[in-house]
Design a protein around this nucleic acid. Structure first.
Length: 294
DNA sequence: TTCTATT
């Protein structure tokens, strides 16, 4: 068995990439990298494509780890604000470097959330692998239970891979949940400038997962998917998010959902569906909790 | 009548 066991500690290896946002990235072979949190003290892997971890101090572990792949990716020291050039050149390529194919691709981190807790690192890897080389996969966990918090980070080898993954996976249905895939906060910025100060400050919630204009929808059919609701209610406006929840308390099963609209007007208009039929059942549509009071 | 959500 080509099983190798290694042991790295925060102190012994932090010199490699000391400022990498409290994470450590270390080459584990010529062709791959593994990253893990400093509290993770030991790891071992049996093949390049699979990696398992031993946690010396699980209570302190917040995120894990890693994946490696066949293709080497040079991890640059700094992010140089230069994007990967797609097939975007208009026949005016004066600069072709055939001999030294510089790796223009920069690793690109994606933030993934609204995952079922059952989807862990291996599942995430499988999902993202088709879209490019996956450099690392992390899953955020409850530090006490070790259970996934339903979110994680996937680093692709290039921005274009990341884009492809977003296009393919964002909003897709995973066990009845609409998975969200976004660029990680640093990448997104969307803002013209990136000041170093912003990077060190706590992440701003720039993503809108919900709008204030929520709708409660009850008496749904079991088979109802977020996507169905999204389609059905899109006639009134933009559905920002759709969540289907299952409650089987008290021996009675209920399926209900929360929708968020981009405006109150759209939300209000949607209430007109109250009492109408959807998937053979009579919809209950009410406005969601309103925090109009201080 | 719910929040699996930015290391």
């Amino acid at each position: 068995m080509a099983t190798t066991t290694g042991c790295l500690t925060s102190s012994s290896s932090s010199s490699l990439f000391p400022n990498d946002r409290n994470k450590i990235t270390a080459p584990i072979s010529r062709t791959g990298f593994v990253s893990f949190s400093p509290s993770l003290a030991s790891f071992h892997w049996s093949k390049l494509s699979s990696l398992s971890l031993s946690l010396s101090n699980p209570a302190r572990l917040c995120t894990i780890l890693a994946v490696v792949d066949e293709e080497a990716v040079a991890v640059g020291d700094e992010i140089n604000g230069e994007d990967v050039v797609d097939e975007n050149n208009d026949g005016n390529d004066e600069d072709v470097l055939a001999e030294e194919p510089k790796k223009k691709a920069k690793p690109c981190e994606l933030y993934v959330c609204n995952l079922p807790r059952s989807r862990d690192i291996p599942e995430l890897l499988e999902m993202f692998k088709p879209f490019g080389t996956v450099i690392s996969v992390e899953v955020s966990r409850n530090s006490e239970t070790g259970i996934s918090r339903g979110s994680g980070y996937v680093t692709m080898d290039s921005i274009s891979s990341a884009k492809t993954a977003i296009a393919a996976l964002d909003g897709s249905d995973v066990d009845g949940r609409e998975m969200r895939v976004r660029f990680s906060v640093d990448m997104v910025s969307g803002s013209e400038r990136r000041n170093p100060e912003t990077l060190n400050s706590s992440p701003k919630k720039i993503f809108i997962y919900d709008s204030p204009h929520k709708l409660y929808i009850g008496n749904l059919a079991w088979a109802t998917k977020p996507e169905d609701l999204r389609n059905h209610f899109s006639q009134f406006g933009t559905v920002v998010s759709a969540r289907v929840l299952y409650d089987r308390k008290g021996g009675k099963n209920r399926v209900f959902a929360f929708l968020s609209f981009s405006s109150a007007a759209e939300r209000d208009a949607s209430v007109s569906l109250n009492g109408t039929e959807f998937c053979g059942r009579t919809l209950v549509v009410r406005k969601g909790v309103e925090r109009t009071e201080p």
